[in-house]
Amino acid sequence: MDTQQQTEVAQEMKQLLIRVATHRDKQAFNKLFAHFAPKIRAFGVQRLGQQGLALDLLQETMTTVWTKAHLFNAHKGAVSTWIFTIMRNQCFDMLRKVQHNREDAFGDDIWPLFEDSGSGDGLADHSFTRQLKHQLDKLPPLQRQIVQGVYLQELSQQELAEKLNIPIGTVKSRLRLGLEKLRAHLEKHHD
């Protein structure tokens, strides 16, 4: 596409977005959607690694375009810049949610090591409990405090944050670090 064609497309996109903003023009929105959907989807697949998440990104981005079209300012930039900024922000939000879900689930995959360690006889269970306590004692005090609070005292991360008067993010990061250390040791000595 040459420079003249790019300018014409940019002008057309601007007019379409203005029609969406001022008249809630569904046909104009459909044209915007058809133009930007393949680009947003491709970006989503590349960044999020899953077709389903890429489609969610497309839906979230274009929903935001529809609801916030009145905020577009043609004097500040092109329609494509505005829409791609929305897309990137939505993508960052999705990545944060995915990461948050991974961190919450991280502890779940360490506990089968604890549960499977005993063969049902009390001696193996006792030995493993002793080994676990020994490894907990090796954790840095702040990480140990969080791991024990969440898994032994069965406090939620939010309850622990409030009890210790620290941010929830600090609880999550200490928990993740502590569990990674425990997991590494347990996998090393699990056999």
Results as ranks from 00 to 15, higher is better:
23 H>G: 05
101 N>L: 05
174 R>S: 06
172 K>M: 14
117 S>K: 11
50 Q>C: 11
91 C>E: 11
11 Q>L: 14
89 N>V: 04
166 I>W: 03
98 V>S: 13
175 L>E: 02
135 Q>I: 00
34 A>H: 01
102 R>T: 03
178 G>C: 09
16 L>Q: 07
78 A>S: 12
138 K>Q: 09
167 P>V: 03
135 Q>L: 04
14 K>T: 15
32 L>N: 07
185 H>G: 03
15 Q>H: 04
79 V>S: 11
184 A>F: 07
63 T>L: 09
126 H>L: 12
114 F>H: 14
22 T>R: 10
189 H>M: 11
92 F>H: 05
54 A>C: 01
63 T>F: 10
162 E>Y: 02
98 V>R: 12
15 Q>Y: 07
41 R>C: 03
187 E>V: 09
17 L>R: 06
129 T>S: 12
131 Q>D: 06
17 L>Y: 02
55 L>Q: 10
72 F>P: 00
84 F>R: 07
130 R>E: 15
120 G>H: 01
86 I>F: 03
158 Q>K: 12
34 A>N: 08
123 L>P: 10
4 Q>G: 11
172 K>Y: 15
13 M>Q: 13
68 K>M: 15
79 V>W: 11
148 Q>E: 13
34 A>V: 00
14 K>L: 12
136 L>W: 04
138 K>G: 09
170 T>M: 07
33 F>A: 10
92 F>L: 15
170 T>Y: 04
150 V>L: 00
168 I>W: 12
121 D>V: 08
16 L>R: 02
144 R>L: 06
156 S>N: 09
38 P>R: 05
